[in-house]
């Protein structure tokens, strides 16, 4: 009996302290960490069309079309298929693709979730967080360091 009462007292304590841990989602934007991985943003100006992101992507989310001179023509990314592993950002030597913190995206059909390079370019920052800034201190570990054998596949 004492145990039951203790349990009931605990819930009553929580009811009376008036604290809540849920948030009113659409009204209050949730906090996300600077490292959070959301929808991609792509910079055509930076991209050198090395296709590393396409190669590293585990489930063929990224599709790149180039002409014979290896000039980029298309850069498509199926955001509905992406698993947000961030490997593309990790291997990109020029920071041409970045995962923003933006996690809010909708579409009526699956097709609309296949973003082309223009749509990718126009993905907004979430709360003006620039992921490059937040992740910059760590990027050194990736680019230009280590004597491992380099294989551009």
């Amino acid at each position: 009996m004492i145990g039951i009462l203790k349990g009931m007292a605990t819930t009553m304590k929580h009811a009376l302290d008036g604290e809540t841990f849920t948030v009113e989602y659409p009204d209050t934007a949730p906090d996300v960490s600077p490292r959070f991985r959301g929808v991609h943003k792509f910079s055509q100006e930076r991209c050198i069309w090395c296709r590393q992101c396409e190669n590293v992507c585990p489930n063929d989310t990224i599709q790149i079309v180039t002409d014979e001179q290896r000039n980029g023509e298309q850069y498509n990314l199926h955001i509905g298929q992406c698993i947000y592993c961030r490997l593309c950002e990790e291997v990109c030597p020029v920071d041409a693709i970045l995962l923003t913190q933006n996690f809010e995206f909708t579409a009526d059909t699956k097709d609309e979730l296949a973003y082309n390079k223009e749509q990718l370019k126009n993905v907004p920052w979430y709360k003006d967080i620039d992921p490059l800034e937040s992740r910059e201190p760590d990027r050194g570990a990736w680019i230009g360091e280590g004597e491992g054998e380099i294989d551009y596949q």
Binding site: M1, I2, G3, I4, K6, G7, A9, T10, T11
Partner: peptide, 14 residues
């Protein structure tokens, strides 16, 4: 402690 109050020490749960 709260969990123990609510779960493991509850007689019906036991």
């Amino acid at each position: 402690d709260e969990y123990h109050d609510m779960i493991t020490s509850n007689e019906i749960f036991q």
